[in-house]
């Protein structure tokens, strides 16, 4: 069953088109990663989904209801964590958490306390005194402790330290196990990879790729850095190897995901001293995407 369906969503700010025909679909129980560079339109999409701003055209439905008209009804089952958390400076974190939870009706006090403990959060300070990460924790606790079916996170980990990030991931997976659906935006491909079943990549207001990470593998290349005992040769003759660079006997290059096996076999003949591989970055993904689109267009012509 689809929890969230977005079709041809367009948003204009004056003459500027922030979103240009965005399509998106989230199935029940899946974790969907929404990635794109700064200013791509992630937050704009999310704010439309929350009924905070109105789409210029297109449709967006959550639980089969219109996100603008039925916002309040929808929000009873939605929990949201914004990228920039702004809190009332003269209330304490604990008070804000209670108020936010109460806005959706009844809430589970034990669950609230459990998450306060998990995120190691002091609820007695006034919000003006919290650090960025701590403000984010307020929103996260209020989200995880509520009884929602859809979680929407807009770059939720930007202010969290690595330990808290782990707890965040743990909480997301927990929610997923309970059959909850999660939409979350990020710039960081590796973060999305760890959590998401599927991703959508947005750039300049357009979704340029969607699919499961495995499906997207074919456009991803891993980065390798290799040092061998004997001089490494014949790399440039292998298929699917790009951008080879040599420095002090160390080779770095990119490999198509489906060609990794062949490449490793080849390298191992030379006695590997050091082998590092890193996942593709968002930038690599875009480069690859445009290379592909460019080729296709050349082919079509």
């Amino acid at each position: 069953m689809s929890i969230l369906v977005v079709e041809h969503l367009t948003k204009k700010f004056g003459s500027f088109t922030a979103l240009d025909g965005v399509n998106m679909e989230l199935k029940e129980g899946e974790v969907y990663g929404f990635i794109g560079p700064n200013g791509a339109g992630k937050s704009t999409t999310i704010r439309i989904l929350l009924g905070i701003i109105k789409a210029t055209s297109g449709s967006a439905k959550i639980f089969g209801k219109d996100v603008w008209k039925d916002a309040v009804e929808i929000h009873k089952r939605v929990a949201y964590v914004p990228g920039d958390v702004h809190l009332w400076p003269n209330l304490t974190g604990g008070e804000v958490i209670d108020i936010l939870l109460k806005m959706n009706g009844k809430y589970d006090k034990k669950k609230r306390d459990r998450f306060i403990e998990l995120f190691d959060f002091d609820p007695t300070k006034k919000c003006r005194a919290y650090s960025k990460g701590n403000r984010q924790k307020v929103a996260l606790i209020a989200a995880f402790a509520s009884d929602a079916d859809l979680f929407i996170f807009d770059e939720p980990t930007t202010g969290l330290d690595p330990l808290m990030e782990t707890y965040f991931r743990q909480s997301v997976l927990e929610a997923k196990q309970e059959g909850k659906t999660v939409l979350f935006s990020s710039h960081i491909l590796s973060e999305v990879e760890k959590l998401c079943d599927r991703v959508g990549i947005i750039r300049q207001g357009k979704i340029i790729e969607t699919g499961s990470l495995d499906e997207l593998r074919y456009i991803t290349r891993s980065n390798f850095t290799v040092k061998t005992r004997e001089t490494l040769s014949g790399l440039d003759e292998l298929e699917g190897v790009y951008h080879i660079e040599e420095k002090d006997g160390e080779y770095s290059f990119q490999v198509d995901s489906e060609k990794i096996d062949a490449v490793i076999r080849h390298i191992s003949q030379f006695g590997v001293v050091k082998l590092e591989s890193s996942p593709p970055t968002l930038e690599d993904l875009f480069l690859r995407h445009y290379e592909r689109v460019g080729k296709q267009e050349a082919g079509d012509a």
Partner: peptide, 23 residues
């Protein structure tokens, strides 16, 4: 300097009108 505050919201704060009144 700010004092330590409550860890839970009072009954008044939890009603919408009470919240705005309080603010």
């Amino acid at each position: 300097t700010p004092r330590k505050g409550r860890s839970h919201a009072s009954k008044l704060l939890l009603t919408p009108f009470g919240f705005h009144l309080w603010m």
